[in-house]
Amino acid sequence: MIGRRNVLMFTLVLMGASSILIGLLPTYAVAGIIAPTLLVFLRFMQGFALGGEATGVQVLVVEHAPTAHRGLYGGILATGSPLAQTFASLTLTGLAMFLSKEDFASWGWRVPFLMGVLLLVVGVFIRRRIEETPAFKENQKKAAESAVPQERALAVIAKKPGTVIKLVLSWAASAGLFCVSVTYAVNYLTKELGYDNSITFGLLLIGQPGLHPGRSAGRTPE
């Protein structure tokens, strides 16, 4: 059994490393098709990390919380994603306000991704000091004492493929709408409608509460 702590350490490092590498990506003028290909790959890595992070941290916090307050702890944790999106939009809005359009397009958009260095260092520092949950330790003890071999986590895909597909499809609509809202909308507002970057990110900031809270993403106008 791998454990909640180890999984969350992996997802944190994967997310942090992917974000930093995005901030260091070469431009299309320098690397050609390799640049957007690497960007798409790193964004997939961010999504993979987020999937493990979003569910794993909920389990970790709720299992550590007092039994009578698990709902409260889980509810407080759920505010993390929209808060992160708000701070991301505030950062981009501030950069767009104080930088010229050329500077923002050339290097300004990289700043939020490179700030992932600080978040990664702080996150690793904190998570190295977190203990496994009592529930996991109990399951680990039972597994060691049981003569029945434990099933692997991916066994659910083989046993319940229909349920897994339904869950994926039920989430696809809201996730897709979110991606269109915070990614394509930036390009549409700046390129097609001619809005300034600061105004575009400000609009996204205002509309943030109505957006899908399951993802947090950095956006660029390119």
Rank of each mutant, 00 (worst) to 15 (best):
A175V: 07
G207D: 05
A49Y: 04
A88H: 02
M45I: 06
D196P: 04
A65S: 14
F87E: 00
N197G: 01
A135C: 07
W107P: 01
Q208K: 08
S174N: 11
I126W: 15
P66G: 01
S100W: 02
G123I: 07
W171Q: 14
E138I: 07
P209L: 10
M45V: 05
G108P: 00
A35S: 15
G80P: 00
L203P: 08
E53D: 14
L95V: 06
E138C: 06
S18M: 09
G207S: 05
Y73I: 00
F98E: 13
A31I: 06
I199H: 04
R219M: 10
S89Y: 15
L60P: 11
V117T: 09
A144G: 11
T86R: 09
R110M: 09
T55Q: 01
L154W: 13
V164P: 03
L205A: 12
V124A: 12
N197D: 12
L99I: 04
L99N: 02
L90A: 11
L114Q: 07
G176P: 09
V40Q: 05
F125K: 05
E138D: 14
A158P: 12
A143S: 12
L119D: 02
Q85L: 02
A17R: 08
G123D: 12
L120V: 08
A65P: 14
A173K: 09
Y188D: 06
E63M: 03
Y188P: 01
M45F: 07
V180F: 14
N6D: 11
I157K: 09
T93W: 13
G74F: 09
A54M: 04
W109I: 03
V57K: 02
V59F: 13
T200P: 11
L14M: 15
E63Q: 07
K166Y: 03
L8D: 02
A68I: 08
T37M: 14
L42T: 08
R127H: 11
V182L: 03
L77M: 10
N139E: 15
L114V: 05
A144P: 05
I199Q: 10
F104T: 03
E145V: 13
F178Y: 11
L14W: 02
D196S: 15
S174K: 03
Q85R: 04
Y28S: 02
T220C: 10
A68G: 01
V59N: 07
S18F: 05
T37F: 11
I33E: 15
K166M: 09
